[in-house]
Design a protein around this nucleic acid. Sequence first.
DNA 1: TGACATACCTAGCAACGCTATGTATAATAA
DNA 2: TTATTATACATAGCGTTGCTAGGTATGTCA
Lengths: 110, 110
Amino acid sequence: MKKQAIEHTRLLALSLLAGEDMYGYQMIVELARRSNHTFDMKEGTLYPVLHGLEQEGFVEAYRKQAPTGRERKYYHLTRKGEHALREEEAAWRRYSGAVNDVLRGGAEAV
Amino acid sequence: MKKQAIEHTRLLALSLLAGEDMYGYQMIVELARRSNHTFDMKEGTLYPVLHGLEQEGFVEAYRKQAPTGRERKYYHLTRKGEHALREEEAAWRRYSGAVNDVLRGGAEAV
DNA sequence: TGACATACCTAGCAACGCTATGTATAATAA
DNA sequence: TTATTATACATAGCGTTGCTAGGTATGTCA
């Protein structure tokens, strides 16, 4: 499969941050809500991914006080991250389209 | 993610065998054709999966002489395999639908 | 005050798919 | 005729991904 393709966690994480800055815990809750609980992402999955995205410059982190007084770590999607998101989205459409083609018994014409 | 969900190799393999019995090498070529070369499955990926499917009773293997005189190992989808395919297809639709929901910014209503 | 939800983090493990390699035969090119 | 390529199957070993399991800490509520 070319290069393992999917990496759905990255796609989902980038996509969540496209609308607004979020903190990790919020992303997990939001993802569950938006996917009608199809995705129940674990902290052990998300946090390392966020750190990776930060290192690649796709997101930037900043700390902000919550109204509760508690400090949260928010993530913001950078230009580079927006670009990466568009690419991941395109890869997803290509991938899911190909799966659907195969399920239908194969696309006859191009 | 519940249980890693996708397992796309199994889904694709079962789906290929839904139409007709095939041998491994043929499945790889067919998959490339039907997916417009989005999927270029490796032998090191497919063969172990086929062996696994056979052990689970989802497929049955038999050897048959090719017109070239060469022997090939064909795989046939069993009843159990058809059932598994339907379940994997449903899981795929649920999964891909959820990804699309998240990409769209989240499904509002149920 | 104790329990729970919130909020972050990492080490270690398991599964999946790939690379690399091996074997063997048929077809084709040199 | 011989060498190369395509066909056809197989497995060992590795890397990536995501999960389990555990740890730390703070705010809320009974």
